[in-house]
Design a protein around this nucleic acid. Structure first.
Lengths: 215, 215, 215, 215
DNA sequence: TTTTAACCGAGACGGTACGTCCCGTCTTGGC
DNA sequence: GCCAAGACGGGACGTACCGTCTCGGTTAAAA
């Protein structure tokens, strides 16, 4: 038996309040803190330190899960129902497309716009993050576009090959470009312009250019 | 006395004694240091401190001229012949457009790509910077597009109203979007796709859609 | 002229209160803060962070001057009139020696005792610090011993060769050893014992052992 | 050599499976890990975390047994044959004393020297630890001194009253003081000096000062 | 020409955040 | 139950920059 000589150093303070959080509970607490910080101070002023403090935990608990600010924010966005898309069937592809773009534009005007921008800036630094972002762009938004176009195909407004063509995402691509260059809010006139002057001519049948090379 | 406004060769003298740099000489020394830092460590790792040290001057001298990293970088890019565009007349709008996009793609693959990205990220924080960036995007690139389209109009390939329409910049907009989302290098196949499947159908006469509302 | 676009980022807060401290003023503020911390929480709980906070400055300002906690504390002790020795002439070497040891014992019982102890512990880690400590031990205390012995020599109580012999510091050495092993306070009986049973027999003439080899 | 102390010699298998260590086996594994850490990184860089990892156990298992680093180290030293003293009978008290001091000096030059130093530093913080340390100092070393002096008494070199007087430990006390202040290695000249110029004059009969007051 | 003011270089200043290490406690699975 | 492993809330580490300010100088314009 070792020489047990009793307590030696003072316990600096009892810093435990109730049962200690772990795993999922702690994780979501951190993510919520991240979202709060994002909306309050924005992406570029968000720090790991503040997030940890806000979540009432230590920095280590944050770093253990997310190696970088960007990835933390990305996950936090996932938690926020940011990519919720609600696509009403307006009875025509024009109405559907307008509705979709307007929803996108609204999102861009929200705090999420700045976050998106910030994340795009980080892509250079962090290839892994870049991959994550691309994935989300690939999957979330095109999915909405896909729904719109499928309805249009069913209505006979659009030919099926358009779905897999580059033309499918031209509207959302141009809107995104507009936002990134000129910021929010995107004027509605621009949206209408994109749809009427560019998108519809490209996708409505008879197509201005037959799908010769569309495999 | 060091050659003022000489070529790229810096005077590596000890400026703590001897003739001290001022005005333009100092300014361009800072900008050159900024460019060097950009190419070496990239936009996001660039700091005012390092720039000042590299330019062998004090931070104050930098802050006196540029209130923020982004603006400094922006000016440095201006100094670098970054927006040099050389548009060969290939005899057809397709060739011209391909050449233009390929030049853009090359720029994006260079260190400038990362810088562009970083600057876009800063736009949220700094509206005035945003304005500067937009200005350059407005003026430099559309100018190149304009040249291409004007030639096409002269050849009769494109109708004049296209020049002022939103369609004019669709190709460059889509390429930029592609770069921002998926990074460099942009595959040549994508460029060809954009031109053949989207851009040309939109601008070649007979236009697929008459300019009813283009005022 | 660079593109000066005006103020960009907000000044987070005006954190300056009056003229900024520099040089000596700041230095002594840090040392005072160190002393305060020492007396309040002790050597081993003293941190650079708390010292900086207490001195209302940044950690960098502290590290710029003192590379380690130990050296900072050492300098702080120097500032505190810690080694003030006031040696009354009691008319005999016995009285003088007792007075000296009693002063030392008092110092050891003060917070300084713990500090001394801590510094001794650090000597292993930091040779440079060790050198500093030795220097102070060499110069401050032996000086007091020297004064006592010189008076004794003048009185004829002690022969001159004792001054440069190892015997000179036996009393203080034994007291120090006593403190380090058994802690403070050192009982007065111990001090009397050291003086009467060891020190005086060694130094009083006729010496119990002639200085054959003392050069 | 700290490790392999005794008949423990377990197969250093992966303890995460297979028979799990308990009780004494685990305990000595921790102590051995502690000794190894001590010799490799020294006392002040030794952490509970590293010890636990090295012993392939959890921190809790360590804390359950030793409430503090110092006590753990103390026990580890006990396990190492640190206080092994081997006193040859040289036929005279001078030779015996020199041998003893030289052995002490050797110990001080070993890693144990740094450990001793560190433990002394901890004494301020932990009175109970302090008691343990004093105990060991009281019992181990004086015992050796006692042996030396008893032989001397038998030979008639030293009078019996010296054994219980403060003079008995003067040599070891001065050597310890020398080590703490000036570090290792202690030059042999110093040892000879202590013995010849201080210790022997104090203990050899005829004593320079009769034991009037030695009760 | 002499003065004077601006500007230069250098770097200290008060401060925030970084990412890591360790503290001592607590919890989870397994044996 | 105790073991191993390691997460937990927290604090401090030492470093890098931030943007401001101060300090001697140099140097160009004003007197």
């Amino acid at each position: 038996m070792p020489s047990s000589t009793g307590p030696v150093t003072e316990p600096p303070a009892d810093h435990r309040k109730g049962p200690r959080r772990r795993g999922e509970e702690l994780e979501s607490a951190i993510l919520r803190a991240t979202l709060d910080e994002l909306t309050e101070v924005g992406y570029s002023a968000l720090t790991m330190e503040r997030v940890a403090a806000r979540a009432r935990t230590g920095k280590a608990a944050v770093y253990r899960r997310w190696p970088s600010r960007a990835q933390l924010v990305l996950d936090a966005c996932k938690l926020g129902k940011i990519s919720e898309v609600d696509l009403p069937d307006t009875g025509g592809v024009r109405g559907d497309a307008l509705a979709l773009l307007r929803q996108m534009a609204a999102t861009m005007s929200s705090p999420l716009g700045g976050i998106m921008r910030g994340l795009l800036g980080e892509m250079t630094r962090d290839p892994e993050l870049a991959e994550l972002i691309r994935e989300r762009i690939h999957t979330v938004r095109p999915l909405a576009v896909h729904v719109v176009l499928e309805r249009a195909v069913e209505r006979g407004e659009v030919e099926p090959w358009v779905l897999t063509s580059r033309r499918a995402t031209v509207a959302t691509d141009l809107l995104r470009n507009q936002f990134l260059l000129f910021g929010a809010p995107v004027e509605d006139e621009v949206i209408v312009d994109i749809v009427d002057d560019i998108y519809l001519p490209l996708i409505l049948s008879p197509a201005p250019h037959p799908p010769d090379k569309a495999d």
